[in-house]
Amino acid sequence: MEIQIDNARLSWQGHRVFDGLSLHLPGGQWTCVLGQSGVGKSSLIQLLCGIADRATVSAEIRCSDGLPLRGRVAWMAQQDLLLPWLSVLDNVLLGPRLQQQRRASAEQQEQARYLLSQVGLADHADRLPATLSGGQRQRVALARTLLQDTPLICMDEPFSALDAVNRIRLQDLSAQLLHDRTVLMITHDPLEALRLADQILVLQGSPARLSAPLRPAGATPRALDDLQILQWQGELLRQLAEEPER
């Protein structure tokens, strides 16, 4: 599903984070928004997810199916946000459990188990999150996001808390499992954006503006040692570094 956002405005404690922002999310593609910390990347995601609590927000959001976006966005954050008292399986089933008074249907249970096997954690279903490693926990969060099956998936630096190797692994896994889904991913890592995105935009300035989209060619996840990718990485880094430090 295609999504067009216009006139997005968000201010927080009297500070205009962005104003009159437009963003087009092509259906079935990954859009990455790059920017340094504090520029308002997360605010953009929170606006779309309807969880920008302490900010004043407004935006015109149009979905290609004509229905409102509200309630149809999955959110994957930097922290896995697994509930420590629920098993891995129940964490994946959190959505159905919250909507249906704790009971998930047999069909949903089966789906959750299938997704856990997809992220390579089939035999961890009954364990508590505290017994998993950081990478495993983020895999569970990915499975939970997949179970939601929403037309838009918003990912807010989902891999930045992981070590380098685990980050690459999870990027690959996400690219594979979320292929053909409409995804908006926020990151401060140009290489991550270049590996995964169909279009990349840079969010810069105060109030923040979006740059013209960059569209790397080729299927994702792209190779780490691709020369074109590395050259773009240098360019994007230079562009990001031009902005004064926050």
Binding site: C49, G50, V73, A77, L98
Partner: peptide, 18 residues
């Protein structure tokens, strides 16, 4: 933790479920 509550809201949880 506010993250838990925000997640619950994106998952469509009402006040009671939260």
């Amino acid at each position: 933790p506010t993250g838990y509550l925000q997640l619950a809201r994106t998952l469509g949880a009402g006040r009671r479920a939260q």
